[in-house]
Design a protein around this nucleic acid. Sequence first.
DNA 1: GATATTTTCAGATGATTGTACTAGACAGTT
DNA 2: AACTGTCTAGTACAATCATCTGAAAATATC
Lengths: 197, 197
Amino acid sequence: MAIKKSERTRQRIVESANRLFYRQGFHNTSFTDVVAASGVPRGNIYYYFKTKDEILLAAIDYRLERIKVMLEGWSDTYRTPLERLHRFIALLDDTAEALTQFGCPMGSLNAELGKANRALQHHAAQLFALFEDWLTDQFAELGYAGRARELALRLISIGQGISMLTHVHHDADWLRSERRRLRRWLDQLAEGDESCL
Amino acid sequence: MAIKKSERTRQRIVESANRLFYRQGFHNTSFTDVVAASGVPRGNIYYYFKTKDEILLAAIDYRLERIKVMLEGWSDTYRTPLERLHRFIALLDDTAEALTQFGCPMGSLNAELGKANRALQHHAAQLFALFEDWLTDQFAELGYAGRARELALRLISIGQGISMLTHVHHDADWLRSERRRLRRWLDQLAEGDESCL
DNA sequence: GATATTTTCAGATGATTGTACTAGACAGTT
DNA sequence: AACTGTCTAGTACAATCATCTGAAAATATC
């Protein structure tokens, strides 16, 4: 029971920090910001995390866990790999508003950390790895066993490009039109049309 | 003559700052870093720029100017739009090492500024605009007048995706393989093969 | 119900931040 | 040689930063 309480406090810190890191960037988010957003007093946060980096690590782990759950859910909910891949693409729509305002959470975090703190970036890269592995499975099931990873990487890459330009231009309409194109591309692929590989 | 001297100091500040902003990120680069890197004393920098934001503005203008010169050079050097588009794609090779280490200069800057400082980001978005306009001209000349801008945006988007994943995985080999694909895509397009639009 | 452990939280730490002031060096003009 | 505006450069500043302390409070364990 007591463990539950403290776990909840810890969770509150991680969630608040994670949100701030996404919306403001890691370096642009201060310890005080986390204090204000979480409502957890300064000294108490320090009880759970010795440094700001540790908070980030926990935030990344939190994201990893959520992504895992999401992907497993998709694997359970949808029968065919094509449906699952379409579900992935639909992520662009689900998060359209946030993408427009703050960019891709994975991309922007990795971009920021890759510059100054490569150790932390390496951890953040696991976020991409999760999607890559899952997408690789789907493409393999779709019949592209030999080139499954190649296709997975390409799909993520295209998604990153779309996210970036959407964010740069604050243009959710363009995002939606590119997402439609992506869906058509996927349908073509599912029909065995490899002309565009 | 005296003007020349001071211009050179100013330039030294801008170039050092620009380099640091790219390699470390804007928020993660301190005033003191700029002082150390440029060799220009603190108070003297303040004579040229009242705030850190002003330095960033100047750094963006510096980049804009360099890009303009580069694109005009390409327009002069290469006769056909196809050659020019290939030259653009070759940028991925020219800057492969930096892309791997620090990501795309335009992309990462916009990603960082878009979170906290939208006014500055809007200025940084002009970096993209330059390429977009130039590429639009090339696609129009290539015979895709109606969809020139659409294609320009797509090409940049793909480039951003490639840059991002290359940076995330620190994998310049993957960059090169994707660049080869991009070249093939462009050649197809030039031959009038629209199957992959 | 006494003791041990975990959790809370106000406040201090010194370092670093961006910004600002000031005194004077240098040049060009008279 | 004196004046003028441009430029140099040392240093100070208040604010904010991440980090830490220590003692009180809550809770768990016996």
